[in-house]
Design a protein around this nucleic acid. Structure first.
Lengths: 252, 252
DNA sequence: AGGAGCTTGTGAACGTGAGAACAAAATCGG
DNA sequence: CCGATTTTGTTCTCACGTTCACAAGCTCCT
């Protein structure tokens, strides 16, 4: 090889204020486990204890925690309260995040009623829907407001997180409006791929995809035998004689 | 080294009826994209078209599809209907999977009403709850039945997939009952880590974890400045002076 | 004070996944 | 019938994530 690629030469640059994404995704699980231990009156826990409570293996847990700093004590373990606070701070749930929910159908209803929104650290500031028949309806101690008020609400309440629980159809438009209004994190429950500009984070929760993944594994459990493998690709191009129908509807 | 470990010596054993997990998780997305294209009357699509519709890059899509077989035509692309059928067959949604939903609170209600359960291939055969006040209530064209009927229903309707939408408390017990009754795939919405024996697949959908992941990234967007890093670990062991409260409640 | 016994934090090996790049194969125009 | 063009399928390389294994460090007991 002649020339070194454009890699930075210095040290491995570990922890350059960068926690691996896989670790970030597990921190909330650890936080929940610590809360449960704390509620049980347990003051100290080893990585083994914590790992069991969180459903991971202890080496992974230790490595994950090591990205945050050295919060344990060798020979002893971790102080539950202290570690809990450190993780909460790292995630950012020591402060309050304002959240809007757009689309008050069945799912939107369910989320609006979700006590405390599952976790402290998040505060629903508005339930929005474009349907005039829904506007004004009371859910818990909140009232459904018109989607047109979005921009005003986002600015006033400094909303940075939006939850989309509309059907697939209007989801992209709702998403664009949210982004234009200044929302920079979106949790999408609608069964579509949303596109957002750089700088906006988006996460997807999709029931039917989860079910299909389960079905895939289920399929090769029961049988264990080979499936009716590849029914031979038709001659060349005269495809689609009459394949069995599958799926259908935009919300497939 | 003296003795070779118990690794099979043969060829790389590629595609020994094993599709990478990351690919399996994307197949449902491709299926949905193909359905959308099909509904738009598009008969043929290139990997580029498909990748755009699915929100991935085209090299990844081609590699994913290659695990299923050679279903494309070089210089042309993929036949939408044909590929859709092949993916559906691979996932297993060409057959019908019987599903029970346990826990008919807000979320259970929402899922029960979810038209067609999002995708063909899944059929809700029962809504179960242990609360006598809920039993007998009609939701859509179904009636809530007593959780005690679980074993009978699972056997009669050959249920292999269970959805848990109870609160965190009873979730593990419900899970154990499902497994004992013969359910081998579980989709868990309760905010707890469930333990299941080998051979049972479990997937988790967790709103508060998703929100916390968004919060983490949001936190280092707005500031971009360093956080009030590590407030110095207290002397040695006299921890927990009075850290700010965070979280709380078992369902944290 | 010193050694035994735990438990953390981390270096190194391994496995999986992503993306670039290209050869193989099909169509189409002349 | 042949070469240009298009697009797939696949190989190769790199980055990321997981797991093992062990040295460093803390506590407790003698």
């Amino acid at each position: 090889m002649t020339r070194a690629s454009s890699r930075r030469p210095g040290p491995p640059t570990r922890t350059e204020r960068g926690i691996p994404e896989a670790t970030v995704a597990r921190l909330p699980v650890y936080l929940r486990a610590l809360t449960a231990l704390s509620d049980s009156g347990i003051a100290t826990a080893s990585s083994e204890d914590l790992a069991t409570a969180a459903g991971v293996n202890s080496a992974k847990l230790r490595k994950d925690l090591s990205y945050l700093g050295s919060y344990g004590t060798r020979g002893v373990g971790y102080d539950v309260e202290y570690l809990r606070y450190q993780i909460a701070r790292e995630i950012g749930v020591t402060q309050d995040w304002a959240v809007v929910i757009v689309g008050i159908g069945n799912l939107g209803h369910a989320l609006a009623n979700y006590s405390g929104f599952g976790t402290r650290g998040f505060r629903i500031v508005a339930l929005l829907d474009a349907d005039p028949k829904l506007v004004g309806e009371r859910i818990g101690d909140m009232e459904v407001r018109d989607f047109a008020e979005l921009e005003h609400i986002v600015e006033t309440d400094r909303v940075s997180i939006g939850v989309i629980t509309t059907p697939a159809g209007p989801a992209q438009e709702v998403c664009d409006r949210l982004v234009a209004a200044g929302v920079t994190s979106i949790l999408n429950f609608a069964p579509v791929v949303l596109s957002v500009p750089d700088g906006v984070d988006i996460r997807k929760v999709d029931l039917s995809i989860e079910l299909q993944i389960l079905a895939y594994h289920e399929q090769r459990k029961s049988g264990e035998v080979a499936l009716p493998q590849v029914p031979e690709l038709p001659a060349t191009n005269a495809l689609t004689p009459d394949l069995p129908a599958v799926g259908g509807g935009v919300i497939a």
